[in-house]
């Protein structure tokens, strides 16, 4: 797993120099600021770091959870980032398995302290229909019994299909359902990942719809 150290100031100016396809709505610096704010919100809501476990949902929820854990540790020296972060795979709990090509599951890794009676913060990159989070809640139940479950997402793009809302949101992003929200993070998309990757960003891609005219996209 690549390190998140490369984030931040050094790459701030690169964002528009090599613009990725689509409209960039969050730059690397924006993402970092959003995560810093979410970290503080989590501490605030919990009145301190006690019992907090961050579980990232693969793929891009996990590196975000790791980054958040580091920010918690930075904000509160009693926190050891590695001990409060884990990964929760939800593949087997999806409600669309039979409608999709076969998906290989990813590992689920819990911090050694487990999740019983903990305050579990689920971390994902984009909140959309809410179905992923529904699956994550089911997966969680089979692993233990947290005291509280909260949800932190980098982007909430709306279009919910289930009664689910996020406790912590990096950015609310109104989109049309036809658009795609693309999140790119160094840990996943850097070396060996997306060949066009230059730095962290969130972009909105217009629908690749043959019958829509150029004018409408703008």
């Amino acid at each position: 797993m690549a390190s998140a150290e490369a984030d931040g100031e050094a790459t701030r100016t690169a964002a528009r120099a090599h613009a990725p396809s689509g409209r960039v709505v969050l730059s690397a610096a924006d993402i970092d600021r959003a995560l810093t704010r979410i970290a503080h919100e989590i501490l605030e809501a919990n009145k301190g770091p006690e019992d907090i476990v961050l579980l990232g949902i693969p793929r891009r929820g996990y590196p975000l959870a790791v980054r958040l854990a580091r920010k918690l540790a930075a904000a509160d020296p009693t926190v050891v980032a590695e001990q409060i972060v884990g990964q929760l795979d939800i593949t087997m709990f999806r409600d669309d398995l039979s409608r999709q090509p076969t998906r290989s599951p990813s590992p689920t890794r819990l911090p050694s302290q487990g999740i019983d009676n903990k305050v579990v913060v689920l971390v994902d990159d984009v909140l959309y229909s809410g179905r992923t989070i529904r699956a994550a809640l089911d997966a969680l139940v089979d692993l233990g019994r947290p005291r509280i479950v909260r949800l932190a997402v980098l982007v909430d793009r709306g279009h919910r299909e289930l009664p689910i809302r996020a406790d912590h949101v990096g950015k609310n992003l109104p989109t049309s359902a036809a658009e795609k929200v693309r999140v790119r993070l160094t840990e996943i998309d850097g070396e060996g990942g997306d060949p066009e990757f230059t730095e962290d960003h969130v972009a909105i891609e217009a629908p690749r719809d043959e019958d829509s005219t150029e004018g409408e996209i703008q």
Binding site: D89, T91, M92, F93, L97, S104, P105, S106, P107, T108, D138, V141, D142, L143, G144
Partner: peptide, 23 residues
Amino acid sequence: IRILDTAEEMAAVNDREVRKLPA
């Protein structure tokens, strides 16, 4: 390798208290 890797994740489930998946 895909089968063996998937089996690794299944093995992790078999080590859990609730040894069941809804897949």
